[in-house]
Amino acid sequence: MLREIGSEFHIESEVSNKLDGNLNTTQKKYADYRYTRSGREAIGFILNEIVTSKKVALLPTYICKSMLQPFLNKGYSIEYFGIDENFNPNLKDIERALCKDPDVMLVIDWFGMSRNQDAVCLAKEHSKQLVILSDCTHSYFNDSMTFEPDFIVASLRKWFALPDGAVAINCKCNFENKLEFNDNVFYHHRKEAMRLKSNYINNREKALKTQYRKLLSEAEASIELDDRILGISPFSLSIINQMDFDYMKRKRRENFNILYNLIDKSLGMPIVNKMITENDCPFCFPIIVENNRDQIQEWLAENGIYCPVLWPLPDEVYLNYGISAYLSDNMLSIPCDQRYSADDMEYIAKTIKAFLGRKQHETTKINDSWS
């Protein structure tokens, strides 16, 4: 039976909804935090806390559309700074943008790498009042940061099986606003879809896969049309309370390092080009695949391995920033999360090796036809 690796998490039917007990958090060292429905709502919640003079935001070019939307919803004009092939922010872009006196600067720890220290220092030298908002979704379970932001956001539903859930953190003082959970289509559709996926994994009925994929698609469509900022559902919060974060971090480290050792570097170069230590927790195993990215993504999917692209860029960024466009066009995110074993990682590596063998065979046939 074909195994499946990647795509959405699933929720086992025996997961409970216990709301008692101590809150299982990693952000206790910060002044205050709120759990939101989604990452974009965590950004929106923080923007509601910021006192602005010009409503100008400074954002990196390697960014997904959903992260851009909260700024647009709040009436911000956007200034961009580019990055190089190693995800280092372009300091000259930042210097130019600082002339517009932005109110807030968003930085992102792409794939767990902290490359923003120089950019933040430069921005803070220009203005002590500039608010630094750090998206730590990819680095949330790392042990340390290289600079101190004013606020942090992280989408937690990308890390484990939650129907909804993100966190907004105030690093220096308390939030003024509160959040409430209200029933919503996004939460219900995703919760049901994740249960259906669990059933599908157990019995492989194709109709179940069609159903849960339809629900997931409808959930994403619903949140695109919903501009509310909601709190996390009690069900998702109860799952966070029961999570074994230490196990999750250990499994992700082990799986990443297995892939690092096994995946043929002639196919794609790892973006995080080092072994993961006990101080870090990988979000995924990202690689750059020139020329063959779409073909290998399709090949892996045919063999039950689903690798997303992080991220398709906003049109104005894609057309004007070549390096970010290159990264978006050639990056592939290989799953290495806690759902999977060493055998699963070896299966991924063997499947990629099989793709290389097929490509070499096709090249040989072409060369033979011309000889």
Results as ranks from 00 to 15, higher is better:
I83H: 09
M67V: 00
I78E: 03
D93K: 06
P102A: 05
K54Y: 10
I46R: 10
A57I: 04
Y80N: 05
A42C: 03
E79G: 04
Q27K: 09
L59W: 03
Y35K: 04
L98I: 05
N90T: 03
F111S: 11
E49N: 12
I63Q: 06
A42Q: 03
D109P: 03
K100I: 01
T36L: 07
C99F: 12
I43D: 00
G44W: 00
D103W: 12
N86A: 12
Y80W: 11
D20I: 10
I63V: 09
T52S: 12
A31S: 15
R37H: 03
G75P: 02
I108T: 05
E95G: 08
K74G: 00
R34D: 02
D103V: 07
G82F: 02
G44R: 01
A42G: 06
S114M: 12
N73V: 04
R96S: 11
K65A: 04
L91Q: 02
D32M: 09
I83S: 02
T36A: 05
E41D: 00
K92S: 14
K92M: 11
K100P: 00
P70T: 01
S53Y: 14
R96C: 09
C99I: 14
N73G: 00
Y76I: 11
L23V: 15
W110Y: 15
L72G: 02
V104K: 13
A42F: 09
N24Y: 07
K28Y: 12
A31W: 06
A97W: 07
G75Y: 07
D101G: 01
Y30A: 07
N116E: 10
I83K: 11
L47K: 11
N48C: 01
P102R: 05
Q69S: 08
V107R: 06
T25I: 15
Y76Q: 09
F71A: 06
N86F: 10
G82S: 12
I83A: 02
V56P: 01
W110R: 11
L72K: 15
K54E: 15
Q27L: 10
G21A: 10
Q27H: 14
I46S: 04
V104H: 11
E95N: 05
W110S: 07
N90M: 01
K92D: 15
E85Y: 14
T52G: 04
T26P: 03
L23T: 14
G21S: 07
Y80P: 00
K74M: 09
G82E: 09
N86G: 11
G82Q: 07
L106R: 03
L98F: 08
A42P: 04
N88G: 02
N86E: 15
I50R: 10
Y35M: 06
T25K: 13
M67D: 05
R37Y: 03
I94A: 00
G21W: 06
N90C: 07
R115T: 14
P70Q: 00
K54T: 11
S114A: 15
A97H: 04
A57Y: 09
R37M: 13
A57F: 06
Q69H: 09
G112Q: 11
S114D: 15
A42N: 05
Y76C: 02
N86P: 01
W110K: 12
Y33E: 12
R115I: 08
